[in-house]
Design a protein around this nucleic acid. Structure first.
Length: 351
DNA sequence: TTGGAGTCAATAAT
DNA sequence: ATTATTGACTCCAA
């Protein structure tokens, strides 16, 4: 089947040593040990380079292809993303789910953000890794079974009375309202935020967080939209499932397309000016920044080891890559304009 | 401080 | 049982 080329990885199971399942910085709230400022996670493969170093010199990776492959491998082998995430990426299940479902394009990722993708790539490199993970899965199950068998009388969970900050759950109407507010003002002033908070009976911080999250997630949707486009028509992979995006916002869960209706006994002005450029500009950016502020386009030829490590088995289509770059550029430009438009004084660029 | 990027982690949805 | 969603946090930069 696949080809993952190989590299002579020396055998090694050695990593973990004995007993411990996870070799990650236990996220436990009570972990005294706090050190290793340099190399948190032992990079599975190769040279003694830390992932950070690898990330730094890594060539551009196709996050979409990587996640697609990872999902495929995980399902094929009945491996859950929880185990994969905690063991291989050092991330929690929720984060992994998000990452696999909506990977941001490489060039939009920070160094930190690229780390998980480099780990995934590294992991995919060696098919033995799958075996290892399956072993872990078995061990976990065994441990679980053992536990259930021995201590029949479960540990009476001490009624730890409400020491959990109840999770805030915004009602659909509240999300609706916030979303509407966002359309009017993506970056509300503290004054506006206070207003919204009191009108919706929410904590100010909740409103602030909502805006942060919403902006961030909207942004990501855009990236995804741009990435999934430009997908030519490979003839290789049978399953060319391009997820659907640009439809129901996965950003807020609530479905509420552009239908602008004064659902609630409206207040405020509602000037119908939500046309927003948010629609879809299917036209391609044609004459984009000719000069292109492209980042490092250096012909890296560092160590041969890395080369073999990162080169994909499947040849990529240059046209596709170019397309993505163009789209990325356009997006950047748009963002800059956006920012420039709101610089200095929170303009009320209403209509 | 404000805003963005990454995540966590509770809880919803499958 | 898993996976998906999402409000809140932590870090960082300007």
């Amino acid at each position: 089947m696949e080809s993952v080329k190989s590299l002579g990885e020396q055998g090694g199971e050695g990593c973990g040593g004995g007993g411990g399942l996870s070799q990650f910085p236990p996220r436990e709230p009570s972990e005294p040990s706090e050190s290793q400022p340099g190399t948190p996670l032992p990079v599975p493969g190769h040279s003694g380079l830390s992932i950070q170093e690898m990330v730094a010199m890594s060539p551009e990776l196709d996050t979409y292809v990587i996640t697609k492959k990872v999902k495929e491998v995980l399902t094929d082998n009945n491996l859950g993303q929880r185990l994969f995430g905690e063991t291989i990426l050092g991330l929690t299940q929720g984060s992994v789910s998000d990452l696999l479902a909506r990977p941001k394009p490489w060039h939009k990722l920070s160094l930190k953000g690229r780390e998980p993708f480099v780990r995934m790539q590294l992991w995919l490199q060696d098919p033995r890794n799958v075996e290892k993970l399956m072993d872990m899965k078995r061990m976990e199950k065994k441990a679980y079974m053992k536990r259930r068998h021995s201590s029949v009388s479960e540990s009476q969970t001490p009624p730890q009375q409400h020491l959990k900050k109840a999770r805030v759950v915004l009602a659909p109407e509240e999300k609706e309202a916030l979303k509407r507010a966002y359309q009017q003002k993506p970056y509300p002033s503290p004054k506006t935020i206070e207003e919204l908070a009191s009108q919706l009976n929410l904590k100010t911080s909740t409103v602030i967080n909502w805006f942060h999250n919403y902006r961030s997630r909207i942004r990501r949707e855009l990236f995804i939209e741009e990435i999934q486009r430009g997908e030519g028509g490979e003839g290789v992979s049978p399953s060319t499932r391009a997820g659907k995006a640009s439809e129901g916002d996965s950003c807020d869960g609530t479905e509420s397309d552009g239908t602008v209706e004064g659902t609630r006994p409206g207040h405020e002005h509602h000037q119908a000016s939500e046309g927003e450029w948010g629609s879809d500009h299917r036209d391609e950016g044609t004459t984009l920044a000719t000069g292109s502020t492209a980042a490092g386009t250096s012909g890296h030829h560092k160590g041969g080891a890395l080369d073999s490590l990162f080169s994909f088995p499947e040849s990529s289509h240059v046209s596709s890559v170019l397309r993505k770059k163009k789209a990325a550029n356009l997006n950047n430009i748009i963002h800059r304009l956006e920012k420039a438009a709101s610089k200095d004084e929170p303009h009320e660029w209403e209509f």
